[in-house]
Design a protein around this nucleic acid. Structure first.
Lengths: 340, 340
DNA sequence: AGCTTTTGATAAAGCGGTTAAGTTCGGGCC
DNA sequence: GGCCCGAACTTAACCGCTTTATCAAAAGCT
């Protein structure tokens, strides 16, 4: 037989479709005995619910969407995405919910996709990455009245749910560490300034300057690419007054920066300390290996996925979850500055 | 109004539901004039088809599945996955088809997922990665009679479709290049031996030995991890007779190997040439940068996605597509051996 | 004019489930 | 014994869209 349906089961078990549905979904309305009989028949016929049919009935798509507007190429470059995706996936799988992925070229297409997927009931909710300052997506998604979980935050001015890690705290940790080593000239090669977490990190740095009586503290925004990381590093190291430490907002940039330092004969960590705000295999494979702020990105995403599922089950909820703060892992790329 | 349905449109346009369906799907049965009127109304009401309802009717899920059985962590490590995913996604998007992703822990779970998703009509087809020698998945998927596109091949003993790149040819290119530089002792740090492409590469090496009168040629299988790459490299470089060149099956291993070489004071490329069979940002960021066999993984995946869509449209088809052969990109990690 | 086609549209039957609204029936209670 | 109630099922409507069968009217043909 081609796919058995509940009608087939009903016939074989000598009951009605309704009874079968009750039995299969574990709801009252059938005796334990009948339930067992039905389940046995269903199992024997190797029955599986038809997703579309089920969705039509209870208006649950059984999937959530992740829409990224980044040049597609960067997906392969940033280890971050892979971890997020597999983490989300792990959380959703607990519920049998699927993850639908879409990569688009620009923010307009991203917004359009939110609208389309919602209208088509293709997904039950969305995961949002990289919240921006005054993010236009928030209002749009609130208007769509669809469950959304933002990875990042905290987001004071929105009703959307989010799970966040304390970037400020992590940045403090990084700066405190460098200051304790004796560094007074620190440059921060930041990410894109419109990102909420970038801004947060930059703010901490400014504040830290006063606190630690640092001589120099600059944040330089970039597009996160390895090439900009390299260019900026070259520029920084070409100045008369070199900083003694550089903090990079991503490990890709940190590795690129390390390359530039080597190329220019700047010894790491003797002449220059390098600290990456992102940890991944990359940071461990280089020589010297990179001191980094590490966190369990995957677990974070899994937590977010669970939150989203709760949200879908009860849309009146607002989930605000703080995950663990990134932790500094000292490796070979940091040391006291020369002459300290 | 909540979601408009075709019934709403029908009412507003003063026609029947059937007419609306015909008009919206561009099929005969309505006059051009009525069609336009209906389309205008649909547009005005901002109508979108309900995916589940449509799927129920025509039994198309509008999604394809990608199921990976790898420890979830590696997803974040291997740039390969990100590129595959975004490439597939790009190809599928042309058709409005979604990509559903599942990461499972073991091959059994993978097989189970194929069965479940097929039974649930959750997807219209699958993309398969990393074909194995005597891959048990092939028979299972053939039995399920579901469209499948394998990324890799060629696969002589199956009716499944595939798109492949000529790994043998690429390996030839690599070995020829090293031989031309004067290398006679070459070690191949391979991937998992059960992978079809690993075997193919190993075979080429054996054959090349005779052709180029190489003194030594060994393939050492690994699990693709950076740690095994490092361990194996350390072992190789500790031997009395060191090879003058190592070919790594992945850039992650190559970078790890490079690290070991540096740590042991083996200069690259003066004392040791390193060649990676995989190219990515990683290979370019290291110092020295890695000579690698490069290919457009993303385009490959996009091509595969298109093939799968054709296959779904016409299941009698078998698509066998060869994509471009990886090309050798010389960088800083290869040179003639010392004393040549 | 009388007949067959073609065209443009409708009504209704699914697709495979869920679920609100009955229907039976056995048992407890007065 | 009559009445009421809850448990166990059944019926049938419904979710939103597709598709087939049907039909009336217009068009084409001899």
């Amino acid at each position: 037989m081609a796919r058995p349906t509940i009608a087939d089961i009903a016939e074989r078990a000598g009951v009605s479709k309704g009874a079968v549905s009750f039995a299969l979904n574990g709801r009252p309305g059938v005796s334990e005995e009948t339930r067992h009989r039905i389940l046995a028949v269903a199992d024997e016929m190797n029955w599986r619910p038809h997703r579309a049919a089920r969705s039509l009935g209870n208006s649950r798509a059984g999937a959530v969407g992740l829409i990224l507007s980044r040049p597609a190429r960067t997906l392969g470059l940033e280890p971050f995405f892979g971890q997020i995706v597999s983490g989300l996936q792990a959380g959703l799988a607990e519920d049998g919910t699927a993850l639908q992925l879409l990569v688009v070229e620009d923010p307009e297409a991203e917004m359009a996709a939110y609208r389309t997927w919602t209208a088509e009931q293709r997904v039950d909710g969305f995961v949002l990455l990289d919240p921006l300052i005054d993010d236009p997506r928030f209002a749009a998604l609130e208007a769509l009245e669809v469950p959304v979980m933002v990875l990042g935050g905290p987001l004071p001015d929105t009703s959307l749910s989010f799970t966040w890690a304390d970037d400020s705290e992590a940045m403090h940790e990084a700066v405190d560490y460098l200051a304790a080593l004796g560094h007074r000239h620190v440059v921060h090669v930041a990410g894109m300034p419109q990102f909420l977490h970038t801004k947060r990190r930059m703010d901490v740095l400014t504040e830290a300057k006063a606190r630690h009586e640092l001589a120099e503290v600059v944040s330089i925004p970039t597009d996160y690419s390895d090439s900009e990381g390299a260019v900026i590093t070259r520029r920084i190291l070409s100045r008369r007054e070199r900083p003694t430490a550089i903090v990079y907002d991503s490990d890709v940039m940190a590795v690129a920066g390390l390359g530039v330092a080597l190329e220019m004969g700047v010894r790491v960590p003797q002449d220059l300390s390098i600290l990456s705000f992102d940890d991944s295999l990359l940071a461990r494979l280089t020589h010297p290996s990179l001191t980094a702020l590490t966190r369990d990105t995957q677990a974070w995403a899994t937590e977010a996925a669970r939150g989203l599922l709760r949200l879908i089950a009860d849309p009146t909820l607002t989930v605000r979850h703080q995950s663990s703060t990134p932790v500094l892992v000292p490796r070979e790329s940091t040391a006291p500055p020369a002459g300290h």
